[in-house]
Design a protein around this nucleic acid. Sequence first.
DNA 1: GCACGTCGTCGAAGCGCTTCGATTTCCTGT
DNA 2: ACAGGAAATCGAAGCGCTTCGACGACGTGC
Lengths: 343, 343
Amino acid sequence: MVTLAEVARHAGVSASTVSYVLSGKRPISDPTRRRVRASIDQLGYQPHAGARALASSRSRIIALMVPLRTDMYVPVMLEIAVAVATTARTHGYDVLLLTGEEGPSALRRVTGSGLAEAVILMDVQLDDGRLPLLRGAAPPAVLVGLPADPAGLNCVDLDFAAAGALCVDHLAGLGHREIAVVGGSPGVYARHTGFAERTLGGLRERAGRRGVGLLHRPCDGSHDAVAGVLARILDERPAVSAFVVQNETAVEPLLALLRRTGRAVPEDVSVVAVCPEAVAERASVPLTSVAIPAQELGRRAVERLFARLTGADGPDAAGVELLAPVLTVRASSGPPQGRALTG
Amino acid sequence: MVTLAEVARHAGVSASTVSYVLSGKRPISDPTRRRVRASIDQLGYQPHAGARALASSRSRIIALMVPLRTDMYVPVMLEIAVAVATTARTHGYDVLLLTGEEGPSALRRVTGSGLAEAVILMDVQLDDGRLPLLRGAAPPAVLVGLPADPAGLNCVDLDFAAAGALCVDHLAGLGHREIAVVGGSPGVYARHTGFAERTLGGLRERAGRRGVGLLHRPCDGSHDAVAGVLARILDERPAVSAFVVQNETAVEPLLALLRRTGRAVPEDVSVVAVCPEAVAERASVPLTSVAIPAQELGRRAVERLFARLTGADGPDAAGVELLAPVLTVRASSGPPQGRALTG
DNA sequence: GCACGTCGTCGAAGCGCTTCGATTTCCTGT
DNA sequence: ACAGGAAATCGAAGCGCTTCGACGACGTGC
């Protein structure tokens, strides 16, 4: 292994000079810098990460905690993770992958040992067990998701409440009066996952305001579960003319079942989804949908972290950033049967 | 921050004694050990990762390189990654997340700087650009996947060739004489992704041996793409009575299309998939399938890495480990129309 | 032509840990 | 009762890097 000292000897300068060339923290004359750079290249020098972390007490690593459960939005999770890693690299940082398994103690471990300088948490519950560790100053953190009480926390998420409202607005605008919501799996609600409840809140609020009927049913992604839920919905509210789906695995089963029971989309029923663009575009009927901007979420989370890490710890060190939802109209939504679009 | 020295002072011993208590590399008397342990707990001591890595030249970190593309088996990728992280933790290691974006140089970086002791690579291409860096001794690595020439490399993967053969055996055993293969997206083949080509090889070899007709078509996962591919297959080979699908996103579209065109599964056509169990179980018709054992792959990869890392670098330091495929019969396969099961 | 500030570089002191003798203590065998 | 060992602990020397104060060699202002 090549060390700084060897580079220094090779370039005929002191070790500290090489260090300053690398860090740019003190001015170095042009000829010297050139010489050092050449030696570095020639010897293939790579600074030792541990030594660097020890001396500078900065590891240049951030930890990313992903949920271990795989019952929800898996592709979204991976996309966020990849975006986090990519964005971190542009700042010269690497990403340590933590699973939820170890629980809150994992945070203490990587943070207390100086392994990671900061943390990004995904899949935050409304009342997450990891939150107490994060309030206040101790370790810099950004949550992807929104807990019940975000005071003193740094959060980024899609504005799911607004997303829900947007769906209702779109459908009500088309003339629908009865909407059914096919939600995430029951476990998602049992865990009080923020995004699910917030979407529901937004849907309800806006439906109430516009005088539209709303029926919500959690739903597993399996074909059978969707069939059961659909049957019950149509039984309870025969007047339902539109569905909002917030469960990507339920999308195709739902469309298939509607087709099979002779309901054309969008002529007989409209379907609006909250899901990644890729899912909406490739569905058997291209879906009118509110996109889940996975990449953007990952990127924003990292940017906020670095703002906090490098910035002057300004007044906006903490705070919530909700991305505005965007609804894209595709083929799956239209005015309800027998009615013209009323505008 | 609490240091080793403070713990030592608090316990009334020398720093080295504390270190030996922690590492167990030298015998420490029971009373002393107890005292040290108590001090550690009381002070909330956590060893500094960088210092430890510097002094011992072991970072206790392995790097995991995941593909950045999201066109293939995304949930499988995440599941492998999580299994890798979890298994690594049981050995006291953490996992650094690398994306394919940086390319081979990322390997050099994390490895050359001592950041990671070893590497696990996912989504290996038949002729992967990262392979040259890995041949021979330099840095310990395990591939999840199988390149064209695995000489000198350490690989773990499902035996996709055997999986293909197994599918043919199952269908031929039921009496099918014409099989169509709905493959991964064209990009997968263009990139010469190992598993896709190996499955195809296994399918072809066994089909040839058993005198069964085989037609292969790459296929995107979108509904329209599946529709196109299906139409062409039925056009070219009207006698096709069974499908093998190796593309989880194509599964539901295919089933929906078969239904829509009045072909019952499994009465009129059989469908066998190579996909994760979860997908097979939850499909609109539960699928006879060869499982992709994501967790197992992740776990085995890590175990092999540690065998190599800690082991005596025995003769089997390198080598290929192919997991035997398991075919589970579910509802989607049966004898072809108008024929009894011949055994 | 002399005090003074700059610029570029060097030396040395750590950062917190591991590890390798060396040292002390206490047992064992005879 | 005494040499010889084993067992338990200590001290010190790094691991490779960053960083701070210091220092020589300049140019500048009067």
